[in-house]
Design a protein around this nucleic acid. Structure first.
Length: 836
RNA sequence: GCGAGAGUGGCGGAAUUGGCAGACGCGCUGGAUUUAGGAUCCAGUCCUACAUAAGGGUGGGGGUUCAAAUCCCCCCUCUCGCACCA
């Protein structure tokens, strides 16, 4: 039996949430409460991460959007004009997969899901300005995603290149580095393979330094995200050193952060993918063996290659010369060397690098100790692992005796002076691979002309529309668009000759990298957004979303914003002032809710069961917003009881509340003019209002709700219910509750005789001075243990407190026969009496 | 392995410029009211206890301090991120 119908038969004073919620939901939409205003008030851009429309919204969305709504509503009440938009990240693979499984077009599937989800969000009464909704898969949006691509192209930040890329055999498409996690496709968890392919990239590495340095200024971001981004960019300062080949006029360049170990080099290793490998062994007796090894290594998945103990390789038969000593160094190929980091060649220093050590031991290569700790002598043949810590340089010619820390600098300077090396900075960050061999994405607006080469589609001809009819989007490892002649065959914009469109579509992270700008001018047909509105609204004041986007979306988002800043289109070099990560919503057993696990709770059913306000309040109360939450279904029962209690108390005094005029009270109430009980209640009221105000600002929403609950408990205990302070208190409590539980608050607000909506009636204010008690209780400790308490005036002096404490009977008992050695008085807090 | 964060009642969690540990809520116990209770109201609820005494207590061990959940050192556990980055 449903809770509401059961209770209605029992207690007519129960809060009839269905009726009240429907009434106000419709009212707010009718009066356009959520419409973004254009006036002189200060603006506040409240953004939540938009959603991928897969069926209906889930509990994680619900939590995210309720937090955002609370901020939006409270800012609205505080007199800001608020921009609180929403939209849909509507391109992407699941639509295609669903389409393949069910025979629906991805477009229908996507738009249907958007409609379902939108209805749920309306029901929850999230205060979105729906007139600004954006849907990334519609031509009037992706037209500007293509504009963004061309803008990057014009600025030499988009390019096409051949290289080793991540390939997901399940999704049948390439992936950006950010979309590979532990060697697996982030989406389907299939182990990722490497393939040599020509693909489109955005040159995010050109912004690596700025993306890194500016992290220091992101004071409003969580430290964890800042650290993750720093690590992801992975800046590393080192030295590039050249090793001449023995047999050819050619040098091999390596990157090292430990040039102090240069005399410990006993071999060089190339990555299997390094094109030099083929060249070196061509025509030699080892060609066959090396080629076989390379083919095998390249075919392995990332996971296999990274598995410990698999540190194998093959000798090329070639040698390089040590740049300082001239010694012959064998050249090896090994799959522990990454082709995409540094130069793809590593100098092997087995004594001082664990990987090189393992490799050398396996293949019997020489190990030479060149750094020694002060405490002991290292013998190569006895070592069980590499010595990687600092020490003193040995066996290193003129550098002998130099501490390794200084050696790094000295060796580098020497190499530079001799023309053998240079300083180098390397990044872990790679350029962003943005092309995808799939149908449901924004077409890349480029044309391949046999005469003119790669030619951009003129901006004026955008959008390049995605064909909708007669598309076979079953993945075949190349873009489905390649098989649609009417799409592919075009004439070259430059020479007019026959040419072909690029058949790939863009990574959906391109679509989501700039959506916050389209909200500013969602219907503009001439520009993606206007500079005027960007100047007005940016940066975003608060951006709320999940931490899983730390090194993906949130990095792309900063990158694209900086590009547009350089293009003079946005006024700030960072997109958002403050970032907030809400915690995940788990099921009652602590598992992530997912379709495959079958443990998904739908917000719509929770709302039907408990009502919108108690569900919202329950979600916010159950845990701090940034911590994960286990949704037990019972989580909202305390919140529901609180709302019911408020409902009853207010309605029981509604006649008086309606007649009560808060203006009949003086602007500043003098507490000393109140009776004792009233004075206490008045103080508690102000304490509650202060806590709610502060906690809303810092997003400590669980404690804000606790403050309101506590205060309601006080109101229940309060007997003189005709007191104006009591009536004022109830009124203020309803006011403070409004952004948390908007429907019930609005209903009570109106029942109290207000005509205007509570959301345009200002924000709660409080009297700071009235939050203080005139008589306070301070604890008296003897040797750190509380033995008594004192009631003293708030401003009682140290001396006075000391004397009162020492005179206290219980204190005397505990200090009997002891010498008082010290008395620590902390005014307004406690006294600690220290005895021998 | 490296980096970041976290360990507090039966449970979710309060308390952080060091100053009364356990706010608020769930659950539980007892009582009131009720035809009924998964409603409402009242009381209790960290542990030990000789029960208004007195101890102990914030993952474990040590330290600083008049005073530590909070600061420092060592260890354990968990979560997240990265993972052969030279």
């Amino acid at each position: 039996m449903r809770r509401d119908s059961m209770r209605e038969t029992v207690d007519q004073r129960i809060y009839p949430y269905e009726e009240v919620e429907r009434k106000w939901r419709e009212h707010w939409e009718r009066i356009g409460l959520y419409t973004t205003r254009d006036d002189d008030r200060p603006e506040f851009y409240q953004l939540v991460m938009f959603a991928y429309p897969s069926g209906d919204v889930h509990m994680g969305h619900f939590r995210n959007y309720v937090i955002g709504d609370l901020v939006a509503r409270s800012k609205m009440m505080q007199g800001y004009r608020v921009l609180h938009p929403f939209g849909w990240d509507a391109f992407g693979l699941p639509a295609e997969n669903a389409a393949i499984e069910r025979g629906i077009h991805p477009r229908e599937w996507t738009l249907g899901n958007i409609e379902t989800s939108r209805q749920t969000l309306r029901k929850i009464a999230i205060s979105y300005d729906w007139e600004r909704e954006v849907i990334t898969c519609l031509p009037d949006y992706y037209r500007w995603t293509q504009w963004l691509f061309l803008t990057l192209w014009e600025r030499d930040l988009a390019y096409r290149a051949e290289g080793m890329v991540n390939w997901c055999p399940q999704c049948q498409t390439v992936l950006a580095n950010e979309q590979v996690s532990e060697g697996r496709c982030e989406r389907c968890e299939t182990p990722v393979l490497k393939r040599e392919l020509t693909q489109w990239y955005f040159r995010i590495t050109a912004y690596a330094d700025r993306l890194l340095e500016d992290i220091d200024n992101l004071d409003g971001w969580p430290d964890s995200i800042r650290t993750m981004q720093r690590n992801w960019i992975g800046r590393s300062e080192g030295t590039g050193i050249d090793f001449p080949l023995e047999s050819k006029e050619r040098k091999l360049s390596v990157f090292t952060t430990r040039p102090d170990t240069i005399y410990g080099v006993t071999f060089l290793t190339l990555a299997p993918e390094n094109p030099l490998v083929k060249e070196l062994v061509r025509g030699t007796e080892r060609e066959r063996e090396v080629t076989e090894y390379v083919e095998k290594a390249v075919a392995k998945s990332e996971i296999e290659r990274a598995s410990i103990g698999a540190k194998d390789g093959v000798f090329t038969g070639c040698y390089a010369l040590h740049p300082f000593s001239g010694e012959r160094l064998p050249l090896w190929v090994a799959d522990y060397v990454l082709a995409t980091y540094g130069t793809g060649i590593v100098m092997g220093v087995p004594a001082h690098d664990q990987r090189d050590f393992e490799f050398a031991r396996r293949y019997g290569l020489a190990i030479r100790v060149v750094i020694e700790p002060d405490s002991r002598t290292l013998r190569a043949e006895e070592m069980e692992e590499a010595y990687v810590d600092p020490g003193t340089m040995r066996n290193s010619d003129q550098f002998n005796g130099c501490p390794s820390g200084e050696g790094i600098e000295k060796v580098t300077e020497y190499a530079i002076a001799k023309g053998l090396g240079r300083r180098r900075v390397n990044y872990r960050l790679r350029d962003w691979l943005i092309s995808r061999q799939r149908y449901w994405g924004a077409p890349i607006p480029m044309i391949h002309c046999p005469k003119c080469g790669i030619v951009p589609v003129p901006m004026s001809e955008l959008p390049v529309e995605l064909p909708v009819e007669n598309v076979d989007f079953v993945p075949k490892g190349r873009s489905p668009l390649a098989d649609i002649p009417s799409f592919i065959e075009v004439s070259c914009p430059t020479c007019g000759g026959p040419a072909k469109r690029d058949a790939d579509t863009m990574d959906t992270f391109v679509c989501s990298s700039w959506y916050y700008l389209r909200y500013l001018d969602p219907k503009d047909e001439a520009e993606p957004f206007t500079k005027e509105h960007a100047a007005e609204w940016l940066p975003i004041d608060l951006y709320i979303g999940g931490a899983e986007h730390a090194t993906g979306h949130l990095l792309y988002f900063r990158f694209i914003h900086k590009v547009l800043y350089d293009a003079g289109l946005v006024p700030t070099d960072e997109p958002t002032e403050r970032l907030y990560n809400h915690g995940m919503v788990l099921d009652a057993e602590g598992y992530v809710m997912s379709k495959s696990r079958g443990n998904v709770t739908s917000p719509a059913s929770v709302m039907d069961e408990n009502g919108v306000d108690s569900s919202r309040l329950g979600m916010l109360f159950a845990a701090p917003p940034d911590r994960e939450i286990e949704w037990t279904g019972r989580a909202g029962s305390g919140a529901a009881r609180f709302l019911d209690r408020l409902w009853r108390l207010a309605n029981d005094h509604m006649e008086q509340l309606r007649q009560f005029d808060p203006d009949s009270l003086p602007e500043r109430i003098d507490p000393t003019a109140l009776s004792g009980d009233e004075r206490d209640l008045y103080r508690e009221l102000n304490v509650m209002l202060k806590r709610v105000s502060d906690d809303v600002e810092s997003l400590d929403l669980n404690t804000a709700i606790a403050a309101m609950m506590e205060f309601l408990n006080s109101l229940y205990r309060f007997k003189a219910t005709s007191s104006r302070i009591f009536l004022l208190s109830l009124r203020r409590l309803v006011h403070a509750l409004a952004p948390f539980a908007p429907h019930i608050a609005e209903e009570l607000w109106h029942r109290m005789g207000n005509d205007e909506t509570v959301f345009t009636s200002g924000w709660i204010s409080y009297d700071e001075a009235a939050t203080e008690q005139e008589l306070i209780t301070i604890a008296v400790q003897v040797n750190g243990k509380v033995r008594s308490r004192l009631e003293v005036a708030r401003d009682a002096g140290e001396e006075e407190i000391r004397e009162l404490a020492l005179a206290d009977a219980r204190v005397k008992q505990h200090t009997k026969n002891k010498t008082v050695r010290n008395v620590v008085v902390v005014p307004r807090r406690l006294v600690n009496i220290v005895t021998s």
